[in-house]
């Protein structure tokens, strides 16, 4: 069973997109832990650790990804969660994508991404036991 944490770090107040993703992943047969709005990086990583998820799907609309993502990656490394697949969605300017990928994000999904592409990407990268 593939387990995914859909998390919304930061201060933006919209989680419609995150909920759409959560439902799509559920409909694809995955277990989706959703933790709501306004999560700190510490809370996100604590939840990923406790729930032992295979995938961490971050949704960031606020533009704060340049600070939030590296901090999350730092905590992920500190906790030795090497096998965690990290995805990023929301509003990420083209120029920042490269930085996000080198920070450790596996793939960035922009607005208007077909949820089937996300499902497919996860299935390719996570072996389902």
């Amino acid at each position: 069973m593939i387990r995914v944490l859909v998390a919304k770090p930061g201060l933006d107040g919209h989680d419609r997109g995150a909920k759409v993703i959560a439902r799509a992943l559920r409909d694809a047969g995955m277990e989706v832990v959703y933790t709501g709005l306004h999560q700190t990086p510490e809370q996100v990583v604590d939840a990923a650790l406790s729930e032992d998820v295979d995938v961490l799907a971050l949704s960031i609309l606020s533009g704060a990804h340049p600070t939030l993502v590296p901090r999350i990656m730092e905590l992920v490394r500190e906790n030795g969660m090497d096998d965690l697949l990290i995805l990023l969605g929301g509003i990420i300017p083209e120029d920042d994508v490269e930085n996000m990928l080198s920070a450790g994000v596996a793939k960035v999904f922009g607005p208007g991404t077909d949820t089937n592409d996300i499902v497919r990407f996860i299935r390719e990268r996570v072996k389902d036991e």
């Binding site: 069973m1 959560a22 439902r23 992943l25 559920r26 409909d27 694809a28 047969g29 995955m30 277990e31 989706v32 832990v33 959703y34 933790t35 709501g36 999560q39 510490e42 809370q43 604590d46 939840a47 406790s50 729930e51």
Partner: peptide, 22 residues
Amino acid sequence: PSSPFTGGAILGDRIRMQDSVM
């Protein structure tokens, strides 16, 4: 509960527990 059709689930109880779980 898991969906009887797809086996997937949305687990949302953690939303309300954020104050205590850290």
